[in-house]
Design a protein around this nucleic acid. Structure first.
Lengths: 244, 244
DNA sequence: GAACGTGGCATCCTATAGGATCTGAACATG
DNA sequence: CATGTTCAGATCCTATAGGATGCCACGTTC
């Protein structure tokens, strides 16, 4: 995300599960709230926190062995992403499940934003950016796609990374912010109905088409390829999703 | 300010009145963090907090007469809007001033999103939504436009409200979220260079054109009118802005 | 048997204390 | 004079304590 100044990786994992060293934290350049944020985000993305589940501040604090204060700060940030909702004096809970209407709205929004991103990225990307995109597509191709979540987790990560990179390479911080406002939801929708990865071959080809257009330097083609990809994702998801 | 009008329906507690005025808020369905958030947001919008200024957690807490904990939570929320930035172990500061590049990027993003919003709003708005839009345009026409900030504050508020309403009436929560990701920045840019309101007549006419198109139910025309408005705002701002 | 009041428990919310870190200025030294 | 060091104040960060609130089960009454 916008954490640009983190030039040096911390290297040392500050603590883990039962570190229990209250004051033994190393010289980490991060604060506990960042860790809690990352941990909660991972739990949300992984589906370990089901939609609608309550996220207790004290409980999360106990589980991560920190005080409630950093948990509160992390949840305040997450609330603004729409992934958790807060009710005053009642606490936080994970946003409810996606309905078909939510899904249609999300696809409509992606269709409005992402083709523009593809066009701008095509006009402004550089050698390094292209390499990153190619890497993402390669990871998409090589990622395992088993039935359980742990087995297609990397696939989802590469998928999300591709779109995130497109947004970033627009060189427009606001387009990137607008996509990020959707990004978390895009991830969440991928668990829509719990269907696994059934369309990898098609999706990979569509990502490749976007990448080819960007590499060629054809903005119109890049935008069209992205729009085509999103429309097809929508069609396939509607075909696959349970009626519910 | 948090001492405001506490008197309603707290009288049935004969005891614990010996405590000092510290514990005066009880009936509010809001929590302190919400108050702090609103207060900070107002300060940012009003320009009382200049770009680049540090926002001390302890200092803000003292100023608002609350503890640092709610201030920390409010700032964590604000950080995600891009209006303040945080550096670990150094604190928060207001986002830096808009450069010409930032302004160009913001306008590019608005051109990508807002015409789509206008089109969707045109297709889906109802009688009540139209009335709200008309009210916003009326307020825009009647708002004072003096040279000092306090005198054109209402004008800016009506302007922002118009665009916000358009976003909301798309009926698409994600388009609204995407615009909101820009909304705060849109407000901030209006203080770009500190020039006052010099283009009110033109801007009002353009808003009226958008409203007319939406009222008529012509989506293409609505989108075109919105795009035209944003392009003209960009042109006028570039003409007016100091060279920085 | 059902509606209503009541008490306990979990959780949220805020305040406060203290350790950790940064910043800036005074001071010493080459 | 320039540069590095030290120290003190301010600030951030986290933990803990206690009041306030909501939820839920239990018992009472009609």
């Amino acid at each position: 995300m916008q954490n640009a100044s983190n030039g040096t990786r911390a290297g040392t994992r500050p603590d883990d599960q039962h570190g229990s060293s209250r004051t033994g934290r190393a010289v980490s350049r991060e604060v506990l709230a960042d860790h809690v944020y990352a941990e909660l985000l991972a739990s949300l993305m992984d589906g370990r926190l089901a939609p609608g589940a309550v996220v207790s501040i004290d409980g999360t604090a106990r589980e991560l062995d920190v005080s409630p204060t950093p948990v509160r700060e992390a949840l305040a940030r997450l609330e603004h992403t729409g992934m958790v909702r807060r009710v005053a004096l009642k606490g936080y809970r994970v946003a409810p499940v996606f309905t078909r209407e939510d899904f249609a709205e999300l696809m409509e929004a992606r269709l409005a934003i992402e083709p523009v991103n593809a066009r701008l990225a095509c006009e402004r990307t550089n050698q390094h950016g292209l390499a990153e995109l190619e890497q993402a597509v390669e990871d998409l191709k090589s990622a395992p796609r088993g039935p359980s979540f742990a087995e297609f987790k990397d696939y989802l990560e590469a998928d999300e990374r591709f779109h995130q990179l497109i947004a970033r390479q627009t060189g427009n911080q606001f387009m990137e912010a607008a996509y990020s406002a959707l990004g978390g939801q895009v991830q969440r929708f991928r668990l829509f109905g719990g269907v696994g990865i059934t369309d990898a071959e098609y999706a990979i080809a569509e990502h490749q088409a976007v990448l080819d257009a960007v590499s060629t330097g054809d903005p119109d083609k890049a935008a069209a390829a992205m729009a085509d990809h999103i429309r097809k994702v929508r069609s396939r998801a509607i075909a696959d999703a349970p009626e519910s």
